[in-house]
Nucleic acid binder design. Structure first.
Lengths: 199, 199
DNA sequence: GCCTGTTTGGACCAGCCAGTCCTATTTTAC
DNA sequence: GTAAAATAGGACTGGCTGGTCCAAACAGGC
């Protein structure tokens, strides 16, 4: 992929995660990416919609590579990994000063009802995210209490994290999100035979 | 308040909860409310922003009167009331066919970073909502385990419900939200000395 | 009947939007 | 060297946006 295209994608991703998709104009992206003339932009993307799809794909790939990587770390205890992942989501939001959403949550809220194409893609993102958590939980299955539903727990974790990000954006205080994350860990610990591990 | 004004408010509330604030134009509201000419609209509201504030206020008042009412029902056991409230949120989302957000969550996600005035008002809405849950939990304090933080639990409940609404909007399946709600109840039950009540 | 405020109707404005088109110049690949 | 990209610069369209302004029809109170 051309450098310019990557540059446009990164600029668009930044703007969209801050202001949302509809509130980000093609002109904004062009200005922010430092290129001049619309034709240059339309040389790479045939429409704003296509840009949106590309940004969403790229954001998820990066998230899967970087954000979700800790979930696959083989040298750490699975539950510990899951907790580290939760911490990393909190840390990222703190780093952003509680601004901008989870990229997916913002887009989801904005476009899930309005744009079926985006809805489907976002659903897929959440599904893949959930399946990563689920396979981690499957790994630790002997420690789980009987009847623990891994798919269900994975979705609960995602929903609560998304809700926590939203709360942090509204309150502009990371403390609220930290508390929610800590409670979420306790909830996960509830599903273990031997209670919460040291953390 | 004039009938017309109420009519405009209701129309705007409906459109905004479906499409979001920025995606709802003043012309849309005028058309949907069945009035003709912009001057008529601007006779009641001096700007779109003022309309937005009015809609938000009205939506919260209705939510406090109707949605939150069950939390104050004196004849029902407090925890039972809380569970009924959670059920009612799920039922409302099911009734809407998983479309449209919690009114507050959608606006929050859209405007928290972009518009400080809305952010503050939405924060206040969540705060009042949390305080309603909190006072219910305070009522049941003897049943709670030592060290249970009612403010914190209230915020956790709201965040998870908002996350659950988001997930339902994305997946278009109420089942996901039902599971999250059920798990949330189990989490609440975790804070009780004698475990989960019959439900 | 007359006056005052509500309602109706629509023309209009400047600015932004996504997207098209055309023309050059520069870089890269072979 | 030459062809094919990539880059640059800008004019333009048609539609939508929030918002203003003006004028006529209508109501009820006096």
């Amino acid at each position: 992929m051309s450098d310019r295209k990557v540059q446009i994608l990164d600029s668009a991703a930044e703007l969209i995660s801050e202001r949302g998709y509809t509130q980000t104009s093609v002109d904004d992206v062009i200005r922010h990416a430092g290129l001049c003339g619309k034709s240059h932009f339309y040389h790479y993307f045939k429409s704003k919609e296509e840009l949106g799809y590309a940004v969403l794909n790229r954001q998820f790939e990066r998230f899967a590579d970087r954000g979700l990587a800790v979930l696959r770390e083989p040298m750490i205890d699975p539950i510990e990994r899951l907790f580290l992942f939760i911490d990393s989501v909190v840390a990222l939001q703190a780093q952003r000063g509680c601004r901008g959403g989870s990229s997916f949550g913002t887009l989801a809220s904005e476009l899930a009802d309005a744009h079926e194409g985006f809805r489907q893609r976002i659903e897929m993102v959440f599904e893949r995210w959930a399946s990563q958590i689920q396979s981690l939980l499957w790994e630790v299955r002997p420690q789980l209490q009987d009847g623990a539903d891994t798919a269900r727990l994975a979705r609960f974790i995602i929903a609560t994290l998304e809700g926590a990000v939203l709360m942090s954006r509204v309150t502009k205080e990371i403390g609220v999100m930290e508390n929610i994350a800590a409670d979420l860990k306790r909830f996960i610990g509830m599903h273990l035979r031997d209670g919460v591990p040291t953390s």
